[in-house]
Amino acid sequence: MENLINIKIIDYGMGNIQSVKNAFELLNGKVEIISDPSNIKNADGIILPGVGAFSNAIKNLKERKLIEPLKEAVIDQKVPLLGICLGMQLLADNSEEGGDNEGLSFIAGKICKIPHMEGYRLPHVGWNDVAVKKKEPLFRNIIDKGSFYFVHSYRFECDDEFVVATTNYGQSINAVVRKENVFGVQFHPERSQRKGLHLLSNFVNYIKGTKV
């Protein structure tokens, strides 16, 4: 049997799903965009992409009845999950974007607006260096210094134990977080050229590793 794994991208009506799919197609070949809750079953890895506003995202997830199956897969069955940008922020407990909104609570933390600082334009958009704090599967074979494409106005605040990598924009911003099988990246690996593709392929390899 061919060694392909089932990667499923959650479509909740927001975000650059096509770009994410393009990247995984290049790396793995078997990737599916799903919006039906019953399709989450038998996923080997789940991608939660996202561009947009937190409140809308969580509302859409609820409306499409995706939250319970997601929790079942990620918490009970320990299916690896990668949250990208807004998808990463959805992993937190709550967010102050668009009122006070509850998140998925996969990683304890909250989403706050990046405080305005003189000389730093918001949103934080562009390529920024990422400093890797912990040797993690996502950064295998990627040299410690490298830049990735960010575009966001809110940041993930959480306990240091979950922080894998940070970036600096006048102040420290968590760039990568992880708790067990749940990963979140604030930048867009699908649009961060070779380094980004490399990171995604590391995630694919991580999923393969969990299956052995």
Partner: peptide, 29 residues
């Protein structure tokens, strides 16, 4: 979009939110 691995901004002819959705669906960031 399939051969683009840097952010892709797309413009021209957008007059509604629905247009934006279509462009993003087709691979715009």
């Amino acid at each position: 979009s399939k051969s683009c691995f840097v952010p892709l901004t797309v413009g021209g002819g957008i007059t509604s939110v629905e247009d934006v959705r279509k462009y993003i669906r087709a691979g715009a960031d």
